[in-house]
Amino acid sequence: MSFGSNLLFLRKMHNNMTQEDLAEIMHVSRQTISKWESDNAYPEMEKVFELCSFFSCSMDELLRKDMNVSGDAYSAVHIENVEKFKMARYAVISHDPEGDAINHMKMWAKDSGLLDVPGYELKIIGWDFPFVNQQQINVFHMHGYAAACILPEDFKIDCKSVEIASQDECKYAVITIKNYKESPFDTIPNAYKIIQSYMQVNGYNHREDDNVLPCFEYEYEKDGQDYMNVYIAIEN
């Protein structure tokens, strides 16, 4: 935890701005920014207020908290336009809801003939299913998760055991986690925190709309390594 590492984190989150850019905004030299980020010097209180205002953070966050939860496992956050799509989805409440929901959709994709569509590549997304009561959580240690297969536009659907839904076109703030399975209970929640910090610093608001998913995750393999993309919907 340090002011310098927090400032460096915030600067990079702000569209990867340079020390020169921040120095110009703060009316100081680039060397001063460098000293602040290396904890070799500290700004006057007036400059602290200006930094908090510019980066939309509190003084407590800037000076006391560890804002830099990122590391080598994460890509930079970027904005991605996700076009309108159709999906077959399934939600479950269980002791292993993520595994149960994803496995159900994999079996459905096979049984429905989806995997036989020429040129189709299976894509399953997932998100937390929030409609779980406290007894299910506290007493039975159960949680909820929903998974969905992205469908080709002309796919003829047998609706058994799944729900068919459509999603409008939407912009998302996105981050990629590399080898997320090594410590998923740390890396995945941190990914959401990094995106939320990025949104806060850059002035993006969450999109709250019944026609789009507020957030979702997409797991895939590449070159023998596991990846996950985390998406949070933002207003246009």
Score class of each variant (00 low, 15 high):
6 N>E: 15
8 L>I: 11
21 D>Q: 01
21 D>P: 03
24 E>L: 11
28 V>P: 01
30 R>H: 11
32 T>V: 14
33 I>T: 03
34 S>H: 14
37 E>D: 09
39 D>F: 09
41 A>F: 09
43 P>W: 05
50 E>Q: 14
53 S>H: 08
53 S>E: 13
58 S>Q: 01
62 L>R: 01
66 D>Q: 04
67 M>V: 11
69 V>Y: 04
70 S>V: 09
70 S>R: 03
77 V>W: 04
81 N>L: 14
86 K>E: 09
87 M>P: 00
91 A>W: 11
92 V>Y: 09
94 S>N: 07
98 E>P: 01
102 I>K: 00
106 K>P: 11
109 A>D: 01
110 K>R: 09
112 S>G: 03
121 E>G: 00
122 L>R: 05
125 I>D: 01
126 G>P: 00
132 V>P: 00
135 Q>L: 13
136 Q>F: 02
137 I>R: 14
141 H>I: 07
142 M>W: 04
145 Y>K: 05
154 D>L: 06
162 V>R: 01
169 E>W: 07
169 E>K: 06
170 C>E: 02
174 V>F: 01
181 K>P: 03
182 E>C: 12
182 E>T: 15
183 S>R: 15
192 Y>T: 15
194 I>K: 07
202 N>Y: 07
204 Y>R: 06
213 L>I: 07
215 C>M: 13
217 E>V: 10
227 Y>P: 01
228 M>T: 08
228 M>W: 03
230 V>E: 09
233 A>C: 13
234 I>K: 05
